[in-house]
Amino acid sequence: MRKFVLIGLVLSYAGVLLLAPMLALVINLLEYGLDTIWAAITTPEALLALRLSLILALCSVMINTVMGVLIAWVLVRHQFWGKRFFNAVVDLPFVVSPVIVGYVLIVLFGRQGWLSGFPVQLAFSTAGMLLVTVFVSLPFVIREVMPVLAAITPEQEEAAFTLGASHTLTFRRILLPILWPSILYGIVLTLARSLGEFGAAAVAGGGVQGVTETATIYVYRALQDRNDVGAYSIAVILGLMAVGILILMNWLRPQEGKKHVD
């Protein structure tokens, strides 16, 4: 009996905390009617903002997946001077406020910045927004992959070596399938974090409509403009994307994960 009370308690807590806001948002939105919503979503500004968010998130996922696995590899498998420091620094994006991150980019690469001579225009550009998005979502893949990588005993790789497999082939055929669930999870988090990024992208990009305005900046601005339909519509789309990502991952995961159940 006590078990059911606990289950009920946990479910209602999680339900209220996780689902209620999403539901409220959707109900709030539907009051405007589908035509109004469709019109709000299909304004060029909203579409461009969504597109920019997606492009930034996907690029950030690709960069952070490749680099994240690489960094995790170096941190787990190699010994070097300053490793502990480097390992701690990886978490920096978790503790630094995104607005500060954006501001630092401007300070470094802005007109009077130390690195203003940098050949690529970073301040107030999509490139700069990508840089800060990559920065804020950097730790996820690393932190997901590291413990799994550390738990892999060397024998699996050694077995592959004795069977003639090169280091790259061994990584691709033996390690990657083992790491894949953690990489996927890291990708989900990276994607979610990148899509949700607001402060750093807003400061780094300057928030120019249709150019450096992401979906979250659009939502913020729409709220300021009293364009509630626009804000809610894009917010719901972002929410649906998040749900979609979760479903996609759940669908991908068992196929890989099943083989790892012991």
Partner: peptide, 14 residues
């Protein structure tokens, strides 16, 4: 469209 002060800093910043 940003807060006026932020906009001013952004323009100064590049």
């Amino acid at each position: 469209y940003l807060a006026s002060g932020a906009q001013s800093r952004a323009v100064v910043g590049g």
